[in-house]
Amino acid sequence: MTSRAGSRGVPLPGSLSGTELLLAVVLLAFAALAWLLSHSLATPGMRLGILTGARPMAPSGFEWARFGFFLLTWLVMMTAMMLPGITPFTIGMSRLLRVRRAGTGSIPALFVGYLLAWLLTGVAAYACLRAFDALAVSGSATAARSGAAVLVAAGVFQFTPLKQWCLVHCRSPMALLMRHGQRAVRSRRGALLVGCGHGAYCIGCCWALMVVLLAAGMMSLVWMAGVAAVITVEKVLPHGRQSSYAIGALLLGAGLVLLVFPELVGAVA
C-alpha cells in the first residue's frame, strides 16, 4: 500500500491528480443533478410510505407505464444516493486503468455497470412497493405494524454475517480491484462486469435499508438523505462494523416501539 492511498486502498483527497480531481467533481456533479431530478420527478404519493401515513394508490390501467416510470425514478434515486459513495472506488479504478494503459471508455462502462446492477434491483423494489400499497388498503394500524416489522427486520439484518461480509467489500474496494482489475483493463465489457460486481456487493450491504426507504417514502428527499447518510457512515467513516451495529440497534428500537404503538405513525405523518 502506498502513501498515496488510504488504509482501504482508495486514494486520499490530498493525493489526487488534476485529472482525478476533475473526475471526482464530475461524479459529484452528476449526483447533485440526480438529487434535483429526484425532487422534480417525485409525485406526492411517492414521498409517503406505510411508515409515514401513505394512502392506497388508485388503480391504474397503465401498469406498464407506471412500472417504467418507477424504474426511471429508481435509477435517478440510486444515482443520487450511491454515486458519492463510489467516487473513491471509481478514482482508484481510473488510476489502475491509466497505469495499465487501458482503452478509453472503461470508466464510463464501470459506472454504467454499477448503476445497471441497481437498476435490476428496481424490479424487486417495485414488487415490494406494490405489496406496501396493498398493506395501505388494509388500514393504518396494519400498515404501521407492517412498517414496524420492516424496521425490525432491517435492524436484525445489520447484525448478520452476510451484512458484515458485504460491508467489508464495500469498505475495501481495493480487494475487488486486485481480483478483477485485469478484466477491466482488457475491455469495456470487463469494466462493465467489474462495475456490476461492485454494485452487487453494495446491494447485498444496503438492500434492507432500501426497503426501509420504500416503507418511509422512496422519493422523499428527507428520507433519501437520511438513508444516504447511514450508508455513507457505514461505507466511509472509521469503525464501519460498530456503526452498522449501532444503526441496527436504532432500527430495532424504532420498530419495536411502533409495533406496540402503531398510532405513532399517524402522529408523525
Rank of each mutant, 00 (worst) to 15 (best):
G122C: 09
V123A: 08
A124G: 14
C128S: 08
L129P: 00
L129W: 02
L129Q: 07
R130I: 05
A134L: 13
A136S: 15
S138L: 15
A141G: 07
A141P: 02
T142H: 11
S146E: 05
A149P: 01
V150H: 04
A153G: 10
A153S: 11
G155W: 00
G155Y: 02
Q158N: 11
F159S: 01
P161G: 06
L162F: 12
L167Y: 09
L167D: 00
M174G: 04
M178A: 14
M178R: 14
Q182M: 11
Q182N: 12
S187L: 11
G190E: 04
A191E: 07
L192G: 04
L193T: 05
V194Q: 10
V194I: 13
H198S: 14
H198C: 09
H198A: 13
G199H: 05
A200Q: 05
Y201K: 03
Y201S: 10
G204M: 10
C205H: 03
C206P: 02
C206H: 04
A208L: 11
L209I: 01
M210K: 04
V211Y: 07
L213H: 07
L214I: 04
L214N: 01
M219G: 01
S220D: 15
S220K: 04
L221T: 06
A225G: 15
A225I: 06
V227C: 03
A228Q: 06
A229C: 08
V230M: 15
V233H: 07
E234P: 01
E234H: 00
V236Y: 05
P238I: 04
R241I: 11
Q242M: 09
S244K: 04
Y245M: 12
A246V: 06
I247Y: 06
I247L: 06
G248H: 04
A249S: 12
A249L: 12
L250S: 03
L250M: 13
L251H: 08
L251A: 11
L252Y: 02
G253T: 10
A254C: 09
A254T: 04
V257S: 03
L259F: 07
F261W: 10
F261A: 08
P262M: 02
